[in-house]
Amino acid sequence: MRRIDWRGALLRPQFMALAAVLGINWLLFPGFFDITLQDGRLFGSVIDVLNRGAPVAILAIGMTAVIATKGVDLSVGAVMAIAGAVAAVLVTGGSSAIVAVGAALLVGLLCGLWNGILVTYLEIQPIIATLVLMVAGRGLAQLVTEGSIVTFSDPVLIFIGTGSLFGMPMPIVIAAVLAIGATLIVRKTALGLLIEAVGVNRSAARFSGISSGLLLVVVYTFAGFCAATSGLIVAGDIRGADANNAGLWLELDAILAVVIGGTSLLGGRFSIPMSVVGALIIQAMNTGILISGFSPEFNLVVKSGVIILILVLQAPMTSQWLRKRMSEGKAQ
């Protein structure tokens, strides 16, 4: 088993960045870390960061595996919209919530399978293969909802988006379960190593007897499943399926979360927990901007500035330089 160096892990740039962003939020708004119990549910800005960060974190879980294989999945935002639309239309049409949730997840799996087949067997570059569904998927979702927001009042679907378990909002619970589950699966089975092997050198993986084709299909299918889960949360949150806006551009946030988490777009080594941390950094920033009272015209500027800073801190050049400075400091 991996022996974890906790001190080393906590000194990673991602944790420092998260701490810095949270710290700035606290300076902007002293009540940032206050948590109260409201109707049996934890309530506070930190909870908001976790709760609002959950959809992107869940996307990032699936995206991490895809990027580790040297791929990328641009369609997850559209798949979110499709899954939400399917669930909403089914419950408003009289189906039970179980059927609706099951159908939405199944549709997500099928979308992922489609991507996987395009990438693996038709050998289309992942960015192009998943672009197909990114563009067409939102159209499909709009067909399902007939262009309008399909509002529902099904308690189960709403619970997925806004309910709570032991005081913890459901999106956080779901994201945590998925993150821990996925991490355990990839690390306790051989999947993690095999995914990294395929990402590092697909040809060598083939020569080593790894069924890389099947592995890739599974990885993209899992990303589709994560996207559908995220789509259910987002739909449940607003009690409706908004095919035009659900998950719009979230694929980019998910990719960013993975990259901030330290998984290279060139494939290979990956870490699901660090991608989740990446998603939380992004959301902490969003929440910070909301409560800061800045004029909305500054949102994107602030966000991009912080992201550039994080990526620079993470760059190998910077870490070498820092290490050198630190060892020089010690020498003196």
Binding site: F29, T36, I238, N245, I291, S295
Partner: peptide, 25 residues
């Protein structure tokens, strides 16, 4: 306070959550 909610339900909810926290619940 004034922030953009991008004309969407989801963002409207998220931004309002932030406002509520920032203005003493």
């Amino acid at each position: 306070r004034s922030q953009t909610g991008d004309f969407t339900r989801a963002k409207g909810k998220e931004v309002m959550e932030g406002f509520l926290k920032a203005e003493d619940g």
